[in-house]
Simulated scan of single mutants.
Amino acid sequence: MKILVTGGLGFIGSHTVVELQNEGFDVVIIDDLSNSSLEVLEGITSISGIKPYFEELDLKIKSDVKSFFSKHSDVVGVIHFAASKAVGESVKEPLMYYENNISTLVYVLQEMTKLNRQNFIFSSSCTVYGQADELPITENAQVKPAQSPYGNTKQIGEEIIQDTCKVNEKLNSIALRYFNPIGAHPSTEIGELPIGVPQNLVPFITQTAMGMRERLSVFGGDYATPDGTCVRDYIHVVDLAKAHVVALQRLLENKNTSNYEVFNLGTGKGSSVLEAIHSFEKVSKKKLKYKIVDRREGDITAAYAETSKANNVLGWKTELSLDDAMSSAWKWEQKIRNK
C-alpha cells in the first residue's frame, strides 16, 4: 500500500519512513528541503535497504500539489509532517508560519479528499494545551489560547481537519499530539539535524558537549517544580515514529470509532531540564557547561502526558528511556561532527 509522507526527510518524518518501510509499506516522500537534507534519504535507504520514492516539492504551490496527487492517485494514506516548527521564529515571522503550515494543509486535504481511500495522520503538538490546569494532561484537557503563531497553526490545523471530517464521512483522520521528541535512530544513520542555532534542548546539549556552543542556557530556575527548572515529557523519536505506523494501521483496518480521533504521544513521565542535563552527563560521561538564566517568554512550567488512551486504544506505548534517547542523540552528534 502506498503511503505519502510529507516532510519525510525531517526529524520525525524520516524516522517514521523507516518504520513504515519496516512494516512493508510503499513510501512516497515529499519535502521542499528547506529544513532538511538529501543526505537523510541516503540514511533511510541505508537502514531499511529500500530507497523510497522522493520528490522535491513545495506544498505552498497549489498547482504542484494537484499535479502530484494526479500522478499518485493510488495513495491510500497520508502522514502530514510538512510544517515550520520553531516557536521563537514563528513569533518573529507569523505570516510565514500561517502560509507554510495552514495553506499547505488545506491544499493537501483538497487533493486527498478526491481519492478513493482517505486516511490522514496529522502531526500535532501538546502546545495546543498551553499550561494545562491538571497534570498529567489528558486528551480531554482544554485547548487554550496559543502562546505562539506556531502553536496556533496546530490548533487551526486540527480545526480544519475536524471541519472537513464533519462534511466528508470518507475522510478518516487521527491527530497525534506529541510532547517532546528527542534522540536518534540507533544506527546513527538519521537523527535531529537543526539548521543554524538549535531551537530545542537536546541538540543544544550535544552541540555544547562537542564544543560548538560555549555553554547551555537553562531558561529559569525559579519555577514551581522540584528543582526550579521547566518539566517536559521527553519521548524517543523511534517510539514516536512507531506510533504513527500503529495509528495508520488503525485507520486502514477500520478500527477507528469516529472519523476524527486525537491521541497524546508521550512517556507519561515529566523530567526537568536539569534532569535531562544530568541524564546526558551520565550516558556521555562528559560534564556540561550550563548556566541558569532568566525565564524565556512563552515557556510553560510543566507538561507531561496522560498516555492511557494511546496505550489502551492504540495499543502503543513507549519502550525507550530518557537515557536511551540521550545516548542515541550523543552518538548521532559525534558521528555527524566527525565526518
Rank of each mutant, 00 (worst) to 15 (best):
V5P: 11
G8T: 09
G8Y: 10
F25M: 01
G43D: 10
I44S: 01
I50F: 14
P52M: 01
F54A: 03
V65G: 05
S67D: 14
F69E: 03
F69I: 08
D74Q: 04
A82F: 06
G88V: 02
N101D: 12
M112K: 08
Q118P: 01
F120I: 05
S123Y: 14
G130Y: 11
A132E: 15
D133K: 06
E134H: 14
I137G: 00
N140E: 15
Q142I: 06
S148K: 00
Q155M: 14
I160E: 13
C165F: 08
N168K: 09
N180E: 13
H185N: 14
I190E: 04
P198W: 06
F204P: 00
I205G: 04
A209D: 14
R215V: 07
R215P: 02
D222I: 00
P226G: 08
T229A: 01
Q249L: 12
R250W: 11
K255S: 04
S258Q: 15
K269I: 06
S271L: 04
S272R: 00
L274D: 08
L274N: 04
H278K: 15
K286I: 15
K289A: 07
Y290S: 09
K291Y: 04
E297H: 10
A303F: 02
S308I: 07
V313E: 15
S321K: 09
D323M: 06
K331M: 05
N338Q: 13
